[in-house]
Design a protein around this nucleic acid. Sequence first.
DNA 1: TCGTTATTGCGATTTTATTGCAAGAACAAG
DNA 2: CTTGTTCTTGCAATAAAATCGCAATAACGA
Lengths: 145, 145
Amino acid sequence: MERSAEDHLKILLRTRGLRFTPDRLRIFRALADAGKPVSVPVLISMVAEDGVNQATVYRTLEQFLAVAVVQTVLLHDGVVGYELIPPFSSHHHHFICLDCGAVQDLPAGRVDTALDKSLEGTGVRVMGHKVDIYGQCEKCHAESP
Amino acid sequence: MERSAEDHLKILLRTRGLRFTPDRLRIFRALADAGKPVSVPVLISMVAEDGVNQATVYRTLEQFLAVAVVQTVLLHDGVVGYELIPPFSSHHHHFICLDCGAVQDLPAGRVDTALDKSLEGTGVRVMGHKVDIYGQCEKCHAESP
DNA sequence: TCGTTATTGCGATTTTATTGCAAGAACAAG
DNA sequence: CTTGTTCTTGCAATAAAATCGCAATAACGA
């Protein structure tokens, strides 16, 4: 029998002394459904229908960050978005359109290898990284080249 | 005669129909003095001594973003920082310590080359990128390995 | 020097984020 | 299944951050 992402979340939370509650699951699902980074206000409105309180969203995100269920991503204009990270989503980078703000995932592959090499011998202990590419997406480029 | 960064700012602003004012210069200098990304609240308090109003800081940052004088950077825990970008500062990436939040610059070099290659043929029009590395800085690694 | 037009300060408002505490719920143990 | 401990949640107040309109001021091209 296979272990679902939600089972994994359950185990992860309990391991860290946190409880697996309906609200947390709703927030987790909202992030999974979005499939891209979402801002806090957006996330709040997504789960508001399910009766999840605003304060609960803030507190949950803080904990999800602490136990590495989510990470923050910088969208256009300094807006912060939250998204699931491995193993709840695939490892990837972002392409963010400066015109429309759309975010598309980029496979990690070659970039990661290059990154690892360029950090050899720096003395720091790398625990993760983010690579964000900015520009014009195909659609916007077609509309206003 | 050489052209200073402030002269360059002056020209850039005027080219874009913006004015070179004392307040904007103060904000620019505060960012230059900081030498690292600063959050809006911090920046506000830095220039408050010089009599620059809060609203002015927000408005100026918005414009500095628009004309590419600054860029936003994601610090630990979803905090957004602002910093000068080339040609007002050197092109670099960041290493952000997850323990103490310290930010140190990393030379761009090899990473950029690898990035360019990995985006060939994707159809997007790249206008810039950010690479942020997270982990433990040497100091924190020594204290709690 | 002057006129046009961007910029600023101020104060009010709105939005976003945080907090304390009592009631309720998760879950490990018996 | 029942119970007790401890984490979670809702609520509503509060704090903090960000936005806005408008009148006064200042930049700067002519």
